[in-house]
Amino acid sequence: MDRFVVLCVFLAALFGTGVVIGSQRRQSGCTIAVMSTTILAIRTERLSKRYGETLALGALDLAVEPGEVYGYLGPNGAGKTTTIRLLLGLHRPSGGRAELFGMDAWRSPVTAHARVAYVAAEPNLWPTLTGAETLDFLARVRGGTDASYRDVLVERFQLDADKKVRALSHGNRQKVQLIAAFASRAELLIFDEPTGGLDPLMEMAFRETVFDAKARGQTVFLSSHILSEVEAVCDRVGILRDGRLVEQGTLVELRHLRAQTVEVSFDGRVPELPVLPGIEVAKTGSNTLRFEVSGSVRPLIAALAGQPVVSLQSGVPSLEEVFLHHYEDGNGRIGR
């Protein structure tokens, strides 16, 4: 008979731990009732991560205000996904700390995640569930969602919700994740390259939904390397290179960092021009020149006067140019 007693004790022990952990979770879920506007949505302090010998992220200081749409830019392997895994407490920082709404990302992930929704770069979902079942599952595990907004989004993203995930394309699986995240109405949305598989129409739907979220006061942290997307929706941008933040500011601020470009084409061969201080010249065709002007354009205009100029185009630098500027080595090649 004693064998049953021993077995029962073991099962009771196992069940016991489950129940204790469960009740802890429920209690901690109730503790965050007061929200202060002074608390940052995301704050990192000298946050760093090493994987063996590789430094994936070095001493990152980041501050994202509530209500802000923050673009997090960087090429593949710069440390964007690492940052997000640290923010979500999925990986443990090697140094420094990360906070979401003032809560430590590693120590209290569950309380923090009650206010966060996440879209992963790879839409790895459960292949045998349908889209609708997946949305239902994610919503119930979260503990609630805005069902009517979810229906709006299913319509807006044209998701075939009765199709099983295994039969959905990459882009369609991404839509499932996006709908789940937006419909949660979470205060902070963390997106890791969320539009990789979306077509241009859906990309527009995504931007529209980000604007909705912003209008409702939600914070968005958008990791991306699609510059036009970041340019379209973000208030502020941080540029990451080799695990370090090399630039941060509003789009207007960033543009000032970069010279404006003047493209000039001539009738016939390119003429000899004097060397002008603060202006770089590059020959871009047999009869075209491109000038990078850091200060005023007056010396350039003066130098061009009397030359056989056919056309002259000037533009403010795009985010792409700002971005490329940070990744170019001295020879104009793209490096890391």
Binding site: I21, Q24, R25, G29, R85, L88, G89, L90, P109, V110, T111, H113, A114, V116, A117, Y118, A120, N124, L125, L138, V141, R142, G143, Q177, I190
Partner: peptide, 10 residues
């Protein structure tokens, strides 16, 4: 990863 980004304790 998707699950633990929700309010689910490890």
């Amino acid at each position: 990863e998707t699950l633990l980004a929700l309010p689910v304790g490890r």
